[in-house]
Design a protein around this nucleic acid. Structure first.
Lengths: 254, 254
DNA sequence: GTTGACTTTGACGTTACGTAAAGGTGTATA
DNA sequence: TATACACCTTTACGTAACGTCAAAGTCAAC
C-alpha cells in the first residue's frame, strides 16, 4: 500500500505539515518521490511513523526520537518493551494526579486539610525520581499497589497512619511473596511469612478473621481471572503458589 | 506562609522563569511586591497555582486556563470534578495506547497481524469520539472494564472472538447489576439475571463450575477490599448486594 | 565589606508545528 | 478541450511556553 501525505496523515491522525516537517528534519523520509515531486510513503514508513508517534506521545523530543529510530542497532521489540514501561509509569503518575484531585475535592468540601506541599504531589516528577533513588526500579510496582491501596483507603475512610501501615504491609506481602516464589516451596519459611503478612493485612479490612475465609480468599486468587492476572503479572504461577501457601498456612490443605 | 519565586517554584516543581512568565501574562500575579521589587506570593496564589498546573497537565493552553481561573463565576469544586473526568478519559486513552503497544509487541514477535489502520489506534482521539457518539457517556465505564478484560485475555491466551464475547458478558453483568441495585432486591429478577450472567462469565475462566465456588466468590467480593472498591466505585453497597444476589442464586443463603 | 545566593528586567533562542502565499498536478465533468 | 477542484509543492513568517543568557540590584552571613 502506498500513501501520499494526506492519506498517511489522515490514517495516522496528523497534519500534512507535520509529515513535511518530519521529512525536513530527516526523521521520516518518503519511500520515493513521484515524477511530479509528490512524497510517496510505503509500508516501512507507516511502521516507522507509528514508532515516532509512540515516542511523541510520551513527550520525547523529536531530536531524541530521531536517535532512537535511526540507530542502526535499533531493536524494535526491546524499544517497545521499554516504551511500555514508560507508559505504565505515566499511568501511575496519572493515578497520583487523580488521587490528588480527589483529595482536593474533599478539601474544597471541607472534609480534610492539605499542606501546601501536598497540594503539588502528583505534579512533580521529582517525587518519583526521589523514590527511584531510594528503592530502585521495583518501586514502580509498589507505586501501582500504593495507588490501589490509596483508593481503597478512601473507600474505607482510613486515617493517614492506618493507610501508611496498610500500604507498608501490602508491599511486604508482595515482596515476600516474590522471594518465596523463587524458592518454589509453598510450605517454606518465606511463603508462610507471606501468608502471615497477608493475614495481618486482611485484619485491617475484616471485622473478624477466620481460617476458612482466609483459605477461601486464597482459592479465589486462582479462581477469579482478575486476581490471577494481578498476581501473575510479574511471575506467572504466583497466584497458584500463593493459594497453596495460604492453604498450608491455614491448615486447610486436605 | 509567604513565598518568593524560588521557594514557590521548588514547592510546585516549576522554574522561576515560569512564575515570572505567569505574572507577565497575568495568569498568576504575586500577592504583593516587596520594597525591593521582589515578588511575594501568599496562600491564595499557592492554591491558584495548583489549579493552573492541574489544567496545564491536561494540555489546556495557558490562554484557556486564564479564562477558567479568572472567571468570576468560577466554581472550584465543579471545575475539579470536570477535571477529574478529563483525567479519567486521559487514563483510558493511555490504556488504549498500552493495549496497542502490547499488540505491537505481539506483532513484532510474529504472533498476530495488524492492519495499518489498527496501528494508529490509541493515538487518535477520533476513535474515542466515535464511541462517545454511538454509546454516550457510559462508554467510559465500559472502556475501563474493556481494558481490564483485554489484559486478562492476554493472560488467558484467548482468541479474538472469545475475548469479545467475554467483554460483552462482563459489560452486561455490570449493567444488569447496576439496574438491579436500583431495585434494592437481591432476590429480584434483575439481580438474579446479573448473577446468571456472572456465572456465564465465570465459565470462560473456570474449568468446572460449582455453586459452592460461585458463592465463595460472591463472599469474596465483600471480603477483599480491592474487590469491594471495584464494585462500590459507582454505587457503595453494590458489592454486598451482589454477594446477596449470588448467594440466593446459588441457593447457598442459609 | 565582601562573598554568594538570591532577586529584578530585558531580550533573543527553541521546539514543533500552524498558517498563508504562490504556484504546479491529476482527473472528472461540461 | 477547457475548467473546476482537490490535491501536491516550496518558501516563509507566526506561535506557545517557556529556556537561557546578560547586566544589575538585594540580602544574610561571615
Amino acid at each position: 500500500m502506498e500513501y501520499t501525505v494526506q492519506k498517511l496523515g489522515s490514517l495516522a491522525g496528523i497534519s500534512t505539515r507535520t509529515l513535511r516537517y518530519y521529512d525536513e528534519i530527516g526523521i521520516l523520509k518518503p519511500a520515493r518521490i513521484s515524477s511530479s515531486g509528490y512524497r510517496i510513503y510505503g509500508q516501512k514508513e507507516v511502521d516507522r511513523l507509528q514508532q515516532i508517534l509512540f515516542y511523541r506521545e510520551l513527550g520525547v523530543s523529536l531530536d531524541n526520537i530521531k536517535d532512537i529510530v535511526t540507530a542502526p542497532s535499533f531493536d524494535g521489540a526491546n524499544a517497545l518493551r521499554e516504551h511500555r514501561e514508560k507508559l505504565l509509569e505515566k499511568r501511575e503518575q496519572l493515578d497520583l494526579l487523580i488521587a490528588n484531585v480527589d483529595k482536593t475535592i474533599a478539601l474544597a468540601e471541607g472534609r480534610i486539610k492539605m499542606s501546601d506541599k501536598e497540594k503539588f504531589e502528583g505534579f512533580k516528577q521529582k517525587m518519583i525520581d526521589d523514590n527511584e533513588k531510594k528503592y530502585g526500579k521495583e518501586i514502580r510496582e509498589k507505586y501501582g499497589n500504593d495507588t490501589v491501596e490509596k483508593s481503597n483507603a478512601k473507600v474505607m475512610n482510613m486515617t493517614k497512619e492506618q493507610h501508611e501501615e496498610v500500604t507498608a504491609l501490602a508491599n511486604q506481602v508482595t515482596e515476600t511473596l516474590a522471594q518465596a516464589f523463587a524458592t518454589g516451596d509453598p510450605a517454606g519459611e518465606l511463603a508462610q511469612k507471606a501468608a502471615d503478612l497477608h493475614k495481618q493485612w486482611l485484619t485491617y479490612f475484616w471485622n473478624e478473621y477466620s481460617k476458612e475465609a482466609h483459605a477461601g480468599l486464597g482459592q479465589m486468587y486462582v479462581d477469579d481471572p482478575r486476581f490471577t492476572a494481578y498476581y501473575d503479572e510479574k511471575q506467572p504461577g504466583t497466584a497458584e503458589f500463593f493459594k497453596d501457601a495460604i492453604l498450608i498456612y491455614t491448615g486447610m490443605n486436605k
